[in-house]
Design a protein around this nucleic acid. Sequence first.
DNA 1: CTAAACCTTCATGTGTACTTCAAGGCAAGA
DNA 2: TCTTGCCTTGAAGTACACATGAAGGTTTAG
Lengths: 138, 138
Amino acid sequence: MNIKEASQKTGVSSAAIRYYEKESLIPAIDRTEVGNRDIDERILRRIRFVTQMRNAGMSIESLRRYIELFDAQEDNTNEQKAILQEQLAVMEEKRDDLQAAIDHLNFKLAHFYDHMASTEAELRALEREHQDKLNDKM
Amino acid sequence: MNIKEASQKTGVSSAAIRYYEKESLIPAIDRTEVGNRDIDERILRRIRFVTQMRNAGMSIESLRRYIELFDAQEDNTNEQKAILQEQLAVMEEKRDDLQAAIDHLNFKLAHFYDHMASTEAELRALEREHQDKLNDKM
DNA sequence: CTAAACCTTCATGTGTACTTCAAGGCAAGA
DNA sequence: TCTTGCCTTGAAGTACACATGAAGGTTTAG
């Protein structure tokens, strides 16, 4: 398929796909006789994977290093493992921050109509309790 | 406390704290007679909250809108609720993407020494299985 | 009284991750 | 043949989130 179709299927712009290829986040894409990209399912999966990682907050640079390790058949293996573990720790912290923020929002929404009905002072007291449990945020 | 101490306590640069104030992510900070910022615990909590949301991947703009709703005593309440719910949905998707990425990494690490011992072909087969279960990533 | 170590505002610079533009090639339909 | 619609590369532009620098003010130590 051509790049436009790949763009439509993945929701990633053509320009971004070219960019990802240039930055080696996806493998080099085969070309037709005239030089146009011919994208297959394998590339589509890679694009979706990159999108997922990007949405999760991973930088292009980290992703490139990660994918390099992934594809490498070399053997600085212990160093590789250390890098993967480091990346994992970063992502877990990010997820936990996100979860705390989600809890925060859910609390707000759960008490939303309370909020509409009650005074600011009452709500602040309620929230203070919540925050004390949640250990000091905002 | 002065801005430098606040910076040290929160791990957020002085410049970033000034920026957050300007962008209304934290309340207007009291000044001393000579015009220096005098930061209290309430502000510190706000800074930490902003940091957490930023780490979780929330943009400055989204955060500002969120905090506005938070602090408002006005009453476009149903619209407000809709916005909070929207924000929540975005964050949950982000968290799920992150979790998928973490699963991916954990799989890699769990099979890391397998990888060292086994051939590429064997590992790819193993991973294909894993991916099939995880429903089509990379 | 002068230097160090804070602070202020305002302006400009920087890195990331793209997006957009310019200039041109190829293939199909009117 | 010419317009439409796709594609190519390379360069330049853009948005966000700060970082850095300039020019100057105040307090504290020597």
